[in-house]
């Protein structure tokens, strides 16, 4: 089983899982991670990932990427987000830093187009933002409890179920896709592509308008799409408790970091993903032991 570990700087480029499980400093998230640690302890990273899936303002500089790439002794994956034209220009400056055969996770069709046309030596991987499936943790688990039927079949599937679609992706050099562990369960049998599951954080939603960036603006100027920021997202975590649920899950938690909301995989979801990996339905696991909203600094 292949395992990718996301790192945040050159000093972490070859970290073991035991080291990575110590990185989380949040008092809210740490206990959740500690509870999962026994399930993950036998995994050992064989690949390193670095970058940003959810925000172009968190992309590393070419210098920071070069430092991580040079320090990294393992196969390497660069994470990239959805982007405006300015973000795409930033990525065009990052791709030449990579080596032939390095993977690039794309979350935007424009990024795939650029990779295919201008950087054919890099290996594109479809990111989880483009793996379309509903992940709404407020309610999706209830559909699983309701039992099998056409609705659950759709909710456990995704756009990767369509062979015409995966054949099109292959024409663009895409042979692998990343997915989330779904609250309603994943039907991996129908996906016609090599799959990597991200854990333990699933994304709920993300935006070009960033709540955290609003801290840097006067009231009437806040919440503009793609507004410049000072990475205020790195200064706080906002935890939501689903206290207004019409169901019994009023203790459920969601977390906002910057422009994106996440849910934490339950032990049941993680066990299902590990089982799928052992049985070969998943080719790889992508471990992100901190919320995948890292500032990607130079520091060792």
């Amino acid at each position: 089983m292949e395992v990718t570990l996301q790192v945040g700087c050159a000093g972490e480029a070859n970290a073991s899982l035991a080291e990575a499980l110590d990185w989380e400093t949040s008092g809210k998230l740490r206990p959740l991670l500690d509870a999962l640690a026994p399930l993950l302890q036998d995994l050992e990273p064989s690949r390193t990932s670095y970058g940003a899936e959810f925000c172009e303002h968190l992309l590393p500089s070419p210098e920071a990427l070069r430092a991580v790439r040079e320090a990294c002794a393992r196969p390497f994956t660069l994470l990239t987000p959805y982007v405006g034209d300015s973000g795409l220009a930033m990525l065009r400056a990052l791709f030449p830093v990579l080596r032939a055969g390095d993977e690039v996770i794309f979350s935007d069709w424009g990024v795939l187009n650029v990779l295919h046309r201008e950087f054919p030596e890099l290996v594109p991987v479809q990111g989880r933002l483009l793996n379309k499936s509903l992940r709404d943790p407020r309610v999706m688990g209830l559909y699983a409890e309701a039992g099998p039927g056409p609705t659950l079949t759709v909710l456990q599937g995704s756009n990767l179920d369509n062979r015409a679609y995966t054949a099109m992706l292959r024409r663009f050099g895409v042979k692998r896709a990343e997915i989330d562990g779904l609250p309603q369960g994943n039907d991996l049998a129908t996906a016609s592509m090599e799959l990597t599951a991200c854990l333990p954080y699933g994304f709920i939603s993300t935006a070009r308008v960033c709540q955290a960036a609003g801290l840097g603006y006067r009231k009437g100027e806040k919440f503009q799409p793609a507004a410049p920021c000072k990475q205020e997202c790195q200064t706080f975590l906002l935890e939501h408790a689903y206290t207004n649920s019409p169901f019994e899950n009023r203790d459920q938690k969601f977390w906002l970091k910057g422009n994106s909301y996440f849910y934490f995989h339950t032990p049941e979801i993680v066990k299902a993903l590990l089982r799928a990996a052992r049985e070969g339905a998943l080719a790889r696991l992508h471990l992100q032991t901190r919320l995948p909203m890292l500032a990607n600094g130079l520091a060792a």
Partner: peptide
């Protein structure tokens, strides 16, 4: 989800 969030209990953790 976006409107539902406004009715949820929240707690900040400063980093």
């Amino acid at each position: 989800f976006c409107t539902s969030l406004s009715g949820m209990q929240t707690d900040f953790e400063w980093h």
